[in-house]
Design a protein around this nucleic acid. Sequence first.
DNA 1: TTGTACGCGTTATCAG
DNA 2: CTGATAACGCGTACAA
Lengths: 326, 326
Amino acid sequence: MTIKEIAQLAGVSSAAVSRYLNEGYVSEEKREKIKKVIETTGYRPSAQARMLRTKKACLVGVIVPKINSESISRVTAGISQVLSARGYQMLLAITDNYSKKELEYIDLFENYPVDGIILAGTVVSARHKKAFKEAKVPIVVVGQKVREVSCVYHDDYDAAKQMAQYAAKMSQKRLAYIGVSREDKAAGAARTDGFFAGLKAAGRTPDERLYREAKFTMESGYAQAMDLMKKESDIDIISCATDTIAAGAIEAIREYNNDHEANMKVTGFGDNRFLRAVTGGITTVHFAYKTSGIKSAELLLEMTEKAHTVPVQIKLGYEMIKGADQ
Amino acid sequence: MTIKEIAQLAGVSSAAVSRYLNEGYVSEEKREKIKKVIETTGYRPSAQARMLRTKKACLVGVIVPKINSESISRVTAGISQVLSARGYQMLLAITDNYSKKELEYIDLFENYPVDGIILAGTVVSARHKKAFKEAKVPIVVVGQKVREVSCVYHDDYDAAKQMAQYAAKMSQKRLAYIGVSREDKAAGAARTDGFFAGLKAAGRTPDERLYREAKFTMESGYAQAMDLMKKESDIDIISCATDTIAAGAIEAIREYNNDHEANMKVTGFGDNRFLRAVTGGITTVHFAYKTSGIKSAELLLEMTEKAHTVPVQIKLGYEMIKGADQ
DNA sequence: TTGTACGCGTTATCAG
DNA sequence: CTGATAACGCGTACAA
């Protein structure tokens, strides 16, 4: 079904049909005819052809490191909500944590073309920044603070600082921290720095022997927590950079103590609902992930419409969630 | 940057550039020239224009009820893996469990047009079946058994039957089941029927007072488990239709017993990794969700390429996961 | 208000 | 092997 066929069936020109579908400017009489034909044929204009002509794709590319993660899926849900409400479609790309793929997808989407790109960033390298600068379409980074383009991020530093102070109060003995690579400025550098700043503010001296670095997986959290317990003694709190890592740590603690009650607490980041329900709640930080998805999508659409030039940085707050064990 | 400009810069025709980019059929001399120009300009052909011309979008529409769910995100990860390996992009639509939106998106995607649609189905109504029959592009349903189109689904009935027999062995007293709406043939009807069949096979008489129906959320699982404990006594096992519901039940049990050790066990479906790590593992069923995503994408691409006509039904097996508590 | 004609960036055809 | 040229389906100046 093309617009021409519809025009023929309705006995009008294709331009009239096009106008009927878009602006207006068509007499009541023809409007009726066209309407009838469209309804009986179930005609729907081709989005492709329209895009080619109008240069407006109503399409946004979303690049995420992985989809099987609560934080990311909440961000994605927020993005999707805004996009679909505004008639946009979402082209989703999953990079499996390959930084290189992020660049490939930015390139691919740019030339697709999409109207804009939302990147749920992990590591922002120099090559990323170059790509941001040269980008032909608006880009919004969510989850990381970036100077080159607009971004929506969380206050990781302050959250971690406050968390450390909480944890210091809870701890009678030694306090360990399992972080992630500093390459990730948000979950890595900011949380680690904030955490150690919090420790100092609480009058504690950070101890390198009590610091471990994990990947973003439960397995890795499990391994690092095990390592801590085997090599160090008198730890009563293991603070983790994510709830996923915390889940691994909980598993490790249970196993290390042969299912007996252990005198060891775990804290996390992210307020994973599953974890909260099942454990009764550990001390963690609630970040408004869905909100950051919503904000980033709104920001992006605004940029596509108004041709912004000045990058905007939006910092979202957080909420400490006290554990049931505290 | 258009193909014409590239052609001009390289001193060849646009057709030559097109051939260079696709099939071949271009002399070594010109090939060099074109290559150089493309590299210096960073030209990338417009996917839009290509689609319009070739009627091949290299685009697959994926419709899911929600993204913030482990099973769905695993399915999606599988789909994405296959699609990106084969050079396809994924257009993701989230329906928020509105069955009506599924139909809208099918319609939208069909006229987009996309090369095919994967529907992570929940409730398959008569209108769905009508849409399947009238579809102009291949459709694969994942997670539900459907006769009208190809599908990839899990053996929910047998899994539930076996689960009931396990649960019956574990139970000394009364055994409750929290299911979901029968409108969902897979997680609802099949699991419920299988479960009761398993109970009978184990020599138990199903008791309606011990059956509850929940939504697909922790909150709902929590509420139904609470209701069970308040109204019925001597329950020692609560089997749940999903791990998410099971998580809610675990929370309810903990709260009902004021954090004291309860003599009550929970089973689930889905083998949620988070739940396994944190609880030490409840008895559950592992479904190969990622595999079903992979299979459905492979099936769909095969259909787009070979113009299949006969629907294929793929049933995937399952694996019982014994709980640590058993 | 209406229809004609052109162009968006590609690929496919066909004559050279 | 190559280069004009005609589509693909739509939106829109422009003339009527």
